[in-house]
Design a protein around this nucleic acid. Structure first.
Lengths: 123, 123
DNA sequence: CAGGATCCTATCCGATACTG
DNA sequence: CAGTATCGGATAGGATCCTG
């Protein structure tokens, strides 16, 4: 195939279309791979956590970004949010089935990177 | 100065330390999950590509960002760069073993997201 | 063709202050 | 505790011009 094909998107012979479209997957991928999305998802893989637990867990994230990241992930259907109208209020977050599905390759990706750098790190 | 003393990072009981450390893996994860890094890596999984082919493939990316992203990935050891001193010059990029290793879970992640959205997308 | 240098805008993100 | 709203600095990223 191929050769000199300048774009002319009509071709679209690629396996994935997300590369040059505004398909909804782009947004999800974007959120999942966002600066904090990765850590939120990996954190929640271990167990459901409350807002402040997440903040402690990821430490370095601000309340603003945590809230913003969570909102995006909830909206994407990767994370669920449960509010208990107690005093003080308790809000717990956890992974949906979709979230766990996504969390696997994400953790795998993460593990492979750390494993690659751990043994021989030193640069 | 960034002396925020709120860090008490000594705890570190979590399974991963990258969450709140400046471990080198953080940088790699950051590059891999960067806005364009994902697409560059996935694009190169199919086959080695030249600069302009990558630009066409990912379309929407600017020369600047492509060059910048590639430089980071090459430096991280995920992508190799081969220059053929012809006229005009040809520069080809491909995945290193590390890159292919990382590409797997990345593609898997990507596939799961698209598969999830494709069948019932619409909403 | 490949990509560096520059300029400029959009966005990210943290700090702060406030609400329920 | 769990957020929201706003401001301002830092950075990402696009457009353009230029070089080998």
């Amino acid at each position: 195939m191929t050769g000199s094909a300048q774009h002319t998107r009509a071709e679209a012979a690629e396996p994935y279309e997300v590369f040059h479209t505004d398909c909804p997957a782009r947004d999800v991928v974007d959120h999942v791979t966002s600066r904090w999305g990765v850590w939120v998802l990996i954190s929640l893989r271990n167990k459901d956590l409350r807002f402040f637990e997440l903040r402690e867990s990821i430490r370095g994230i601000s309340e603003k970004m945590l809230a913003q990241t969570l909102r995006a992930l909830v909206q994407d259907g990767l994370v669920w949010r449960e509010v208990e109208p107690t005093t003080p209020p308790q809000v717990t977050y956890g992974l949906t089935e979709f979230g766990r599905d996504i969390g696997e390759p994400l953790s795998e990706l993460f593990d492979r990177i750390t494993q690659r750098l751990s043994p021989s790190n030193a640069g």
